[in-house]
Amino acid sequence: MGGLGTPSGPVLACGEVRTRLLPTSDAVDERTAERLLRLRTDERVRLSRHPNRYAVSPGLLTGVDCRPPSVNGASSRVVGTVTARAVLVEGRVLQSSAHFSAPASGPDRRRPWGHYLGRPGCLIPVGRLPARSVAEGFLAGPGPHELDVGSIAESLMARVCRHRILDFDLPLTTVNTSLRWTAVPAVEGEATSVLFTKADDGLRTVALRLPHGTAPAAVAGLCEDLALHDWLLTTVAYALDGLPAGHEDSGLPKVLRSLVDHLLHLWMPRGHVDRTLHAVWEELDEHTGYSRQWNVMGQRIRDQLVLRAVRSRHQPSAWD
């Protein structure tokens, strides 16, 4: 199937990305990353080293035949597969990402499975797709008996996390985030747009309008990158929030070290994002000020480290 908004292509793509620290005391090497993400025997784990170490599992398909989410309770039905994959960044941050795309309409009667399986990651409506209602409903979260893409992402996450090589000796507590996204083609002649929201419990939503022809898989890649950087910010902000503001006696708080050891070097926006979508990141960054906030926090951590180092040199410790 073609890109968003092309004649035979989808009119809507939706997905969810869950982001966590890999549950180990240390980042894992490339071989371990490969073992963790080898979810299928017939397809290899994709590894790349530039601009940072990045491993991607083969795609897994989940067959569905159900009601899509909707805001107005419009009854409709979609059949096909949702595709999911796991991503490991620098052997340290684990993401699971599930998405589907859907055309404006499909056959009026449900066809045999064979009809749907030829188009992996595609959900075909029986009849017409109430695209707008589905997009809004998707961001609001599934109701009972509606398609739950988040749970597909979560079970993939859980599957990777159950691996016996993970020691669960986590260096710091973090926030588990979920990012739900929808993408529709921008109206001809109009600019692309991105609408980002943050809710409680680590839930984020992103509503995108993108150029015609954008491949759903590229959108999923963009959203994984957004989710990663939002998670980094959330996690570092959370860790700094609980930090005592420089009590004289306190040694180097463990959490500062953990941030430096495990997270600070991971900021690399657009590292693995399709070129055509770089502008979306920039627009989002301009609205949210993410990069500036990250730089400020990074500087604050380094300042704290320097201050504490200076202090410990000039003050005889209680043990002398």
């Binding site: 966590r20 620290l21 549950p23 979560e154 079970s155 996450m157 859980a158 996390c161 159950r162 669960f168 986590l170 507590t173 973090t174 926030v175 588990n176």
Partner: peptide, 13 residues
Amino acid sequence: FVDLVLRLRHEFD
């Protein structure tokens, strides 16, 4: 239950 606990381990001491 196991999946839930493992997932909460990230967020809670």
